[in-house]
């Protein structure tokens, strides 16, 4: 395979990664890392560098539309970033303390639990109309969005801000420690713990993952993990895919997005468990 074939084929796969990532709020890394390591036999360190680029590309590409269309909850997202960035910064220094194998098993189990919790909310995700959460009221994190699938404005209230913040801290920690899975905990934190509507959770997660990834991107750049010939097709393809995905999310049914998210989460959790057990 010559460099041209590599760039073109990787760009096409990246478009698909961008569409999927922007729909479920996970970023493109879920597709990019296995593609690079299994299909192209690229070293895992370079694959993780490309994954960080794809997460930032998904986030910025999709969030431009989600923020403009008020699909993402800007205030809640920026508020919760306090916890994700702090987690990401601490994670960068814990890397050497904890064995990766233990982490993969631990987070594999957490994600398996999250996928069950997210799946169980499939019939009961009506937005809340009242909230006695002091933090959410103080920072006015409540919102409303226009659901194109249902053709109406849907107002919602936010609860469980403290639990949400704690999970977000762990989400930042995971993304710094393992280089993957930052959105995998963000969506359940907003959907299950804080009762944001599913599509808002996905859009807001998309908005946030770019900042979490940027907090560790500097390290990856300096360590030489961002290879231009991999990063170029990934960034361009994912950006295109994320723009397309952002148009789909508004029109898709909440339940479809939820099921799609659960499926992807189950795959990631199995991947992590496999890495932890067989490594």
């Amino acid at each position: 395979m010559t460099p041209l074939d590599f760039v073109v084929s990787l760009a096409l796969i990246s478009v698909a990664a961008g569409v999927l990532g922007s729909l479920v709020g996970l970023g493109g890394g879920v597709v990019i890392v296995p593609t690079l390591t299994l299909l192209y036999h690229v070293d895992i360190r370079l694959a993780i560098g490309a994954s960080i680029v794809s997460v930032i590309a998904t986030s910025s590409g999709a969030a431009a539309a989600y923020v403009r269309d008020r699909m993402a909850n800007l205030r809640a997202g920026m508020f919760l970033e306090v916890a994700t960035t702090t987690g990401a910064l601490t994670g960068a220094y814990l890397t050497t303390l904890l064995p990766a194998r233990f982490l993969f098993v631990f987070f594999g189990l957490i994600l398996a639990y999250s996928s069950v919790a997210t799946f169980r909310r499939r019939h009961a995700d009506a937005p809340l109309t009242a909230s006695d959460d002091r933090l959410a009221n103080y920072f006015d994190l409540h919102g409303s969005y226009h659901d194109l699938a249902e053709g109406r404005e849907i107002p919602y209230k936010v609860v469980g801000t403290k639990l949400g913040l704690s999970i977000m801290y762990v989400a930042g920690l995971v993304s710094a420690l393992l280089g993957i899975g930052s959105g995998a905990l963000k969506v359940p934190a907003m959907d299950s713990a804080m009762h944001l509507p599913m599509k808002v959770s996905s859009a807001t997660s998309n908005f946030m993952i770019g900042v979490t990834a940027a907090a560790s991107a500097g390290v990856y750049f300096v360590r030489g993990q961002i290879d231009p010939i991999i990063a170029a097709p990934v960034a361009a393809g994912v950006l295109l895919g994320a723009t397309v995905g952002a148009r789909i999310l508004g029109r898709a049914a909440s339940k479809t997005i939820r099921i799609l998210f659960v499926v992807v989460l189950v795959v990631i959790s199995l991947e992590m468990l496999q890495k932890g057990v067989l490594a």
Binding site: M1, T2, P3, L4, D5, F6, V7, Y40, H41, V42, D43, R45, L46, F221, V222, R223, G224, Q225, I226, D227, P228, I229, I230
Partner: peptide, 23 residues
Amino acid sequence: YLALRGPLSYRALTSTSTSFPHS
């Protein structure tokens, strides 16, 4: 790089020993 068939593989550009700017 542009050749569709040829001896040059992308692997030369994506190995850990490939040099590219990182500072």
